[in-house]
C-alpha cells in the first residue's frame, strides 16, 4: 500500500512501489487528464508537478512520489490565468498533449511570472505537439503573463 498526495487529497493505493507513476495516476486514481505519449520522457504529455516542479510522470515510480505533493491537470483551477489564456488564444487542437503543456506552463509562471519569449521557449521546448499548436502556446503564456495576446 502506497500513500499518495494528489491535488491535495490523500489516496491509499494498492500498487507495487515500483509501479509507474503515470499509470498509477491514470489507472488507479482515474485522473485521466495526464496522458501517455511515449513512455520514455521524450514528449512531455505526462507532465505533472511534484512539489511544484514539472516532472515527466512516466519516468517516475509511485515510490518516488511518496511523501510529496503531486498536482495534475485536474488540480489546476479552471480560472487559472494559464487555462484562461489557453482558451482565449484557442490553443488546443486534438488536445491530447495539452494537459502536459499546461502543467509545464503553470510551473514556468510560478517560477518566473514575466518570462521573455526566449525563456518561454527554453522552458517548453521538451514538450512535443504533433498538431503544431506551438505558436498559440507561446501566445497563451505571454497573455497569462500579462503581456497581451492576439485577441
Amino acid at each position: 500500500m502506497i500513500e499518495l498526495l494528489v491535488n491535495g487529497a490523500k489516496y491509499q493505493v494498492d500498487v507495487d512501489p515500483d509501479a509507474n507513476l503515470l499509470w498509477v495516476i491514470r489507472e488507479h486514481l482515474k485522473l485521466l487528464g495526464t496522458k501517455y505519449g511515449c513512455g520514455e520522457g521524450a514528449c512531455g504529455s505526462c507532465t505533472v508537478h511534484i512539489d511544484g516542479e514539472p516532472m515527466r510522470s512516466c519516468q517516475l515510480t509511485a515510490k518516488d512520489a511518496q511523501g510529496k505533493s503531486i498536482t495534475t491537470i485536474e488540480g489546476i483551477p479552471a480560472d487559472h490565468p494559464i487555462k484562461e489564456a489557453w482558451i482565449s488564444e484557442q490553443t488546443s487542437q486534438c488536445g491530447y498533449c495539452q494537459p502536459g503543456q499546461i502543467m509545464q506552463a503553470v510551473a514556468l509562471l510560478a517560477r518566473n511570472p514575466k518570462p521573455s519569449d526566449e525563456q518561454i521557449v527554453d522552458s517548453m521546448d521538451g514538450l512535443l505537439c504533433r498538431c503544431g499548436t506551438y505558436p498559440r502556446i507561446i501566445k497563451a503564456i505571454r497573455k497569462a503573463a500579462g503581456r497581451g495576446g492576439s485577441r
Binding site: E27, K30, L31, L32, G33, T34, K35, Y36, T72, I73, E74, A78, K83, W86, I87, Q90, T91, S92, G95, Y96, Q98, P99, I102
Partner: peptide, 27 residues
C-alpha cells in the same frame, strides 16, 4: 467562433479512447 471542445481540453476532461474504462474490463 470559439471551439466547443476547448474548455474540456484545457481541463483534462475529454474522453479519448485511452480514457475509456468500463466495469470489469481487462487490459
Amino acid at each position: 467562433m470559439p471551439r466547443l471542445d476547448m474548455f474540456d481540453k484545457v481541463n483534462g476532461k475529454p474522453v479519448f479512447g485511452m480514457d475509456v474504462f468500463v466495469p470489469g474490463m481487462l487490459c
